[in-house]
């Protein structure tokens, strides 16, 4: 029996809470089985910083700053299949609640108006990525091939999706994942 080469998988979290990554780990012992077919590239799981050419890229979180845009574009350029994972990547999610306010209002609330601030001012260190005026879903910045809904998507959702890709099938997002309640 010829051994199929392992699929290379990269993941990242943009404006997200890492909840989707935690849910990924909830696959528990099934991860061992998956690792027969998949190897991780750049990901918070591996701490690899440099992205190589990959088969699958999983993106958690929306796009809130210029760095997110660069990271997202790097993933797009290097991943054959790019997947928006979870409510924030798909819709902006909780971070997008700031979209109801201007950036100035948000930053002043956090860094200027908060009581007992020492040297209150809007952070302007050049190291800090510039914030976008709003938090955007990832598909408004790059082309996305699949969307895994959920907050977070369940471990079963990840498992089913990756299994189908491993088997070379077109992944089907079932009604269970798409239902409202």
């Amino acid at each position: 029996m010829t051994h199929k080469p392992k699929l290379k998988l990269a993941t990242t979290s943009l404006a997200g809470c890492f909840g989707c990554h935690m849910s990924f780990l909830d696959m528990d012992e099934r991860l061992i089985e998956l690792l027969e077919h998949i190897e991780f590239d750049r990901s918070p799981f591996t701490d690899i910083k440099q992205l190589d050419h990959c088969d699958i890229g999983l993106i958690e979180g929306g796009v809130c700053n210029a760095e997110n845009v660069h990271v997202l574009r790097t993933y797009r350029a290097n991943c054959r299949i790019l997947v928006a994972v979870g409510a924030c990547a798909i819709n902006g999610g909780v971070p997008a609640l700031r979209n109801h306010f201007s950036l100035k209002e948000c930053l002043e609330e956090a860094y200027v108006k908060t009581p007992d601030m020492i040297n209150p001012h809007i952070p302007d260190d050049p190291e800090l990525p510039l914030l976008l005026n709003k938090v955007y879903p990832v598909h408004e910045v790059v082309k996305i091939d699949y969307f895994l809904p959920g907050c977070p998507p369940s471990a079963d959702t990840f498992y089913r999706f990756l299994s189908e890709l491993i088997e070379g099938k077109e992944p089907q997002i079932g009604k269970v994942e798409l239902r409202y309640d």
Partner: peptide, 21 residues
């Protein structure tokens, strides 16, 4: 091949003003 659905550079304008970068 692909462009953002909103004006990316304009979306940074407010931050450029606030941080003077």
């Amino acid at each position: 091949d692909y462009t953002a659905r909103f004006e990316l550079n304009a979306a940074l304008q407010e931050a450029r003003q606030l941080t003077r970068h």
